[in-house]
Amino acid sequence: MNIFRLLGDMCHLVAIIILFLKIWRSKSCAGISGKSQVLFALVFTTRYLDLFTSFISVYNTVMKVVFLVLAYATVYLIYLRFRSTYNSESDSFRVEFLLVPVAGLSFLENYAFAPLEILWTFSIYLESVAILPQLFMITKTGEAESITTHYLFFLGLYRALYLANWVWRYHTEGFFDQIAVVSGVVQTIFYCDFFYLYFTKVLRGSGKMTLP
């Protein structure tokens, strides 16, 4: 464990908690892409199956359980509890255009042709594109509430910190996970446009982010 990965995990946890609390307290999921949240729940489900097969550390196990519970709880809030506030017409990204290529690629490019390994690879590839429905929804509606932009900021920052973690681990222990690194770079690149808007608009105190 290193500071970059710890900070990254904390940013990830903060992002997930920000979103959950926003929906829970405002009793509304307006402007939130339910599809992205379903994809994130799928990412955690396919990645954390080793919860039952291998124990790494208390931290590892606790974080995996927390991420799984919060991910499913958020999906529950969006599609069940506050479904009347869900903008399904704005959440129109065709997720099958993500799932099919990601599933195909995870069978082609992986470290081992074994069920857990394929599922782990699938979760890594899927995570890199899971935010696209949410970013697409924001471009479609042309705006995002500031709390939603803070959620996206921490979510984008988490994987950027993981990139720093991989640089650190490469230089200190020769660790290099090609699949995770390439996907992490792609994932972080998708946030670049958002980061620009976030720093130039939201942090200037203009509150809501309205796209040009």
């Binding site: 790494i56 590892n60 974080m63 991420f67 470290y111 993981y162 973690n165 996970d177 995770a180």
Partner: peptide
């Protein structure tokens, strides 16, 4: 590629 790498990352 090392398939048995410890997946200690979240």
């Amino acid at each position: 590629a090392d398939s048995e790498k410890d997946k200690d990352e979240l």
